[in-house]
Nucleic acid binder design. Structure first.
Lengths: 204, 204
DNA sequence: AAATTTGTTAACCAGTTGGTTAAACCTTAT
DNA sequence: ATAAGGTTTAACCAACTGGTTAACAAATTT
């Protein structure tokens, strides 16, 4: 009826699996390494999660569930487009600086298995753009922002915010930044990116 | 059909390796699959490239060498910042629509092995931002564009152009696009992205 | 045309991988 | 205490992996 011994073994596994899968990906991850990191026997991984695939999916879904609410914040609240942009840019960058492996993990695995996102879409809380699109059109009609396709605007916002994490090695190499100045660069983007976007859509 | 020396075996291998590595990554790729795709014996891979690692590096360097010239075009010619942006956005998107696996492959493997880019930097023709930064500062001083950090501007350009290829599954899922409308979306970015950037830095 | 080098193959190998098993170990209910 | 059932472990396994070998075939040199 009740669980016995170490109640949080299952969570220790998930924690270890998260760390290994996020830094090495599905193909590069080794079950033994996950077991070692969780300080348990490898058989326990299969006892709790049955297979590498299912353990991976548990990790991936949890990772994606961290991303979705951030997107929904910008998409579904009632603030102005400008506020959405400032708010999202600040929150997203702050959050990802604490979880720098997350964007690359999600993008990489989504590209590895294109079917995977279909499963996720069935989940409630999967980001929906309709309300955002309506808001953009509304503000364009009111002359508050310049005409722009809402999809293009949304993915521009996403691109500018995600890229510093996906392209970290490129940024460091191209602009000769060490870890410290890379972090300063990302930090300054919390406001720079919002200004950049708003400048572009602001009526002249 | 007689057995005879096939002098382009080496290139067949590279072609097959490119296809497999770019779609599955270093860890997901299998030497046997590369051999099958090249219609040769697995031992030939080692005869010509000695190890999986070296074969991978050959593929990676060739992939990166396709990217570098495009970046250097925007960085080192003498045109105006606005022309650089329009020119690069058009060329880059056109090129990547023909090689859609390339951006993800490079980003993924650069993140998998952070040391890898250090080797690449020693290569001649590795993109250098100095001239671009000088040009940006110059145009800012002349009042042709609004003040902006040249690094930020450059990586904004990169982010907006690369993201549609990295985030293809996200774009299709979030905005309910099928393959056809995804392609139209990317196609329209050839000019949309340039307009978006130039709007942002244009003096009001 | 014989000898040598280069290209190619099937078979093989040792190490690794995800996954299984049977027995032992705890914790709780009887 | 003992039975019961979930939890944990060491040992094991079959399939797979990158890589090697030795023999053979084609091209090149002598």
């Amino acid at each position: 009826m009740k669980k016995k011994k170490d109640e949080n073994t299952e969570e220790q596994i998930l924690e270890a699996a998260k760390s290994v899968f996020q830094s090495k990906g599905m193909d590069g991850a080794r079950m033994q390494e996950i077991a070692d990191k969780a300080n348990i026997n490898k058989a326990m991984l299969h006892y709790y999660y049955r297979s590498k695939q299912l353990l991976f999916e548990a990790v991936f879904k949890q990772a994606f569930s961290l991303l979705a609410p951030q997107l929904n914040a910008i998409l579904n609240d009632d603030s102005s487009v400008e506020d959405k942009i400032r708010h999202f840019t600040l929150d997203y960058t702050t959050f990802m600086m604490k979880h720098p492996y997350l964007p690359n993990f999600i993008i990489q695995e989504l590209n590895r298995n294109e079917n995977f996102i279909v499963k996720l879409k069935q989940n409630t809380g999967f980001p929906n753009l309709e309300k955002f699109k309506a808001k953009v059109k509304d503000e364009i009609n009111q002359g508050l922002i310049e005409p722009i396709d809402a999809d293009q605007l949304f993915f521009n916002i996403l691109a500018l915010n995600i890229f510093p994490f996906l392209g970290k090695p490129l940024i460091k190499a191209f602009s000769d930044k060490d870890e410290k100045s890379y972090k300063e660069f990302v930090e300054s983007r919390k406001t720079e990116v919002a200004n950049f976007i708003i400048n572009s859509i602001k009526p002249s």
